[in-house]
Design a protein around this nucleic acid. Structure first.
Length: 419
RNA sequence: GCGGAAGUAGCUCAGUUGGCAGAGCACCUGGUUGUGGCCCAGGUGGCCGUGGGUUCAAGUCCCACCUUUCGCCCCA
């Protein structure tokens, strides 16, 4: 029996690994411009952290976490999302005492024990951004703007921004009661089994049920926005106005409630219609009470998470790494000379590869053509004797024999003249 | 966790009422003694997902499991 991957855990090879690297590079560039700094937090945390932040009643906590005891019997959990760990680090380091607003981003793997599916792995990767310390709607708008800018830089623009406001804890509470009252007024058999239960435990989740019967009922239900208090309403209207003035399109989505308990006020989601059922590419919102809930200062926050596997599904323009030269050699002496030459060209900043095999010349040339390199460097007994090398442009077919010591200069000049 | 579909060469897949394991692409070699891509000829490559069962005989029929996939639930 051979060893295999764990179900839902993927080996990421090129070109997929190149796409991941590219996404991270673009993210760093965009986020840095907005003043975000990178924070790397552990993959393992005490289970308690996630239970308290994500919410005991959520599906993530109840059935999707990888939880196990350490050698002293304490319960540890592989992080199912990033925000909780970032909050813990923020509190533990006392960052709030050193700066009034912290802009943090983090990337890396997350773990959820779900049934794998297209766009959903048990180990998956996220890019996360959190802005802590500002309750201003400008912060909400900045994050959404930055997220869309990031996607745009990746060449992704056929996505839709869904947005809604849950209100603060007080107006949310009054909405909850109103919704429950509305739902109880309906005959129970119109709702699906899950929603009958949710109606009591977490009525907001009835809103985003996909069953047609439930949708019909909730279409006429009271709307969250109508129950927002004046402060929440002003906050949300400002966010929307800023988005409009930036020329960013959005769709008000009264059903968007999201599954983690800590969200309040602004919530948003970016969806794509080209990657199947798991369509949410990124999601986030405001979580003003969370840091206090975890034992920290009463600092507001807003953030988002972006799913890298799902982004990668959308990315069509594959970012391939491109070789400039490909060196082939025909016997032991020229192979060793060629190996040294390859290292020197790399020292000079050029990207290239050498073929080590003892194949026939035709095979070597075929490999060179297949490599996608622009130049083929050829070394045989004749060249080795004279310390020369043949440099062939594989696009134009033009070739020239030059001293090995001049090869770097020759190639640099060639690149330059073609620009 | 629940429901549908699929698993045969590196990849995409054919394989008839159960009867010798196939094609295209890719790869390697040669046509061209040291010049790639196009063309031509040849070649390598398979525990037919795994384990049981039925049968003279199973890629094919039956059962279980594993994996993938499309949905549900939920989420990135």
């Amino acid at each position: 029996m051979t060893t295999t991957r764990i179900k839902g855990f993927a080996d990421i090879f090129p070109p997929m690994s190149d796409i991941f690297t590219h996404m991270e590079n673009v993210a760093r560039e965009v986020f840095a411009r907005c003043g975000f700094v990178e924070l790397r937090t552990p993959l393992l945390e005490f289970t308690d952290l996630f239970q308290r932040s994500i919410g005991e009643e959520t599906d993530v906590v109840q059935k999707e976490m990888y939880t196990f005891p350490d050698r002293k019997g304490r319960l540890l959990t592989l992080r199912p999302e990033a925000t909780a760990g970032v909050m813990r680090a923020y509190i533990e380091s006392g960052l709030a005492n050193r700066e009034s607003v912290s802009r943090l981003f983090t990337t890396g793997p997350m773990f959820r024990h779900e049934r794998p599916q297209k766009g959903r792995m048990r180990q998956f990767h996220q890019i996360n951004c959190e802005c802590l310390g500002s309750q201003s709607p400008l912060a909400d708008a900045e994050l959404i703007n930055m997220l869309l800018l990031f996607l745009d830089k990746l060449g992704i623009n056929d996505v839709i921004l869904h947005i809604n406001s849950l209100g603060c804890s007080t107006c949310r509470q009054s909405y909850k009661s109103a919704l429950q009252e509305y739902l109880r007024g309906k005959t129970a058999d119109l709702l699906c089994e899950d929603c009958v239960r949710r109606m009591e435990t977490n009525p907001l989740r009835v809103l985003d049920c996909k069953q047609q019967g439930c949708r019909d009922i909730t279409a006429q239900a009271p709307k969250l926005l109508d129950y927002n208090c004046p402060e929440c309403r002003t906050h949300f209207q400002t966010v929307l106005r800023l988005l409009r003035e930036r020329g960013l399109n959005y769709e008000l989505d009264h059903r968007l409630v999201r599954g983690l308990d800590y969200y309040c006020r602004t919530t948003f989601e970016v969806v794509s219609n080209s990657i199947g059922a798991q369509a949410a590419v990124a999601g986030g919102g405001r979580y003003d009470g969370l840091i206090k809930l975890l034992g920290g200062p009463d600092v507001p926050g807003v953030g988002f998470a972006c799913g890298m596997e799902r982004l990668a599904l959308i990315l069509s323009n594959v970012h391939q790494h491109q070789l400039l030269f490909y060196l082939i050699a025909m016997d032991q002496t020229s192979r060793e000379q060629g190996w040294l030459l390859t290292q020197k060209l790399r020292d000079g900043g050029l990207t290239g590869e050498m073929n080590f095999s003892e194949s026939g010349f035709k095979g070597l040339m075929r490999q060179a053509g297949k490599s996608g390199a622009k130049y083929c460097l050829i070394l045989g007994p004749d060249e080795a004797l004279q310390h020369n090398v043949v440099i062939k442009n594989l696009v134009s077919g033009k070739q020239e024999c030059v001293p090995q010591k001049d090869a770097l200069q020759y190639l640099l000049k060639e690149i330059h003249s073609n620009d």
